[in-house]
Amino acid sequence: MFSKGAEPADTPTVGVGPRVAEKAVAGPIVRLSGVNKHFGSLHVLKEIDLDIAEGEVVVIIGPSGSGKSTLCRAINRLETIDSGSIELGGSPVPVEGNRLAAHRADVGMVFQSFNLFAHKTVLENVTLGPIHVRKCSPAKARAQAMELLERVGVGAQATKLPAQLSGGQQQRVAIARSLAMNPRVLLFDEPTSALDPEMVNEVLDVMSALAQDGMTMVVVTHEMGFAKRAGDRVVFMADGAIVEQASPTEFFDNPQTDRARDFLSKILVH
């Protein structure tokens, strides 16, 4: 169902999957303009302008400390910004309170360290948001959650606690948890960096399938293979600024800046 090259008709119709959208929609779904942020004297985001179209998969890469995680988290307002604006679907991200909570419900987030709720079972992790935020009935939420867990391949683990799962399984549960909220955009903050190597691919496969299904995604990652395979656009950041952005083919084959060439030479040598 998630395999690459599936026909659009094969995309799930249960209504709990990502909002499948045509890629040609007027106006970006996420727009960052003139975003600045400082950590003390450190200028971590410098005049960031970035538009993300509906259905687009944007992969953010760059050396560590370049601000790519901060940028990702700012879209969800897990990080505040000092100046500039971030909009979702044309309206600015609320600063606090219930409206901010509602914004976050529409923006999924997958963390490096999974952050599954340690005291809840896998199934409860996925149903918590739909029941308490989306006001689904528990029965309906459970049915949807099981569907999602099956789709990411961890349906058999539904009654277990997170700590009983492998890292790869936990991260797939975390993706299912985000999907259960039916988000308009899904943020991935280095989703495979904490995984053992043999588990990286099981997570990347799920992400690739999502991309294939038309999910709008912002992915901070070091996985260049994923960027090439699933990305619509690569954004290269260094020292808090966007240095270069292009389609994966263009970027990897023909980087325009020294910083990018230098970065690519370091990671692609081995």
Partner: peptide, 15 residues
């Protein structure tokens, strides 16, 4: 409680 738990809770839209 690890900070990530609170971030994850906020991320799914919990007040």
């Amino acid at each position: 409680v690890p900070a990530g738990q609170a971030e994850a809770a906020r991320s799914i839209g919990l007040s």
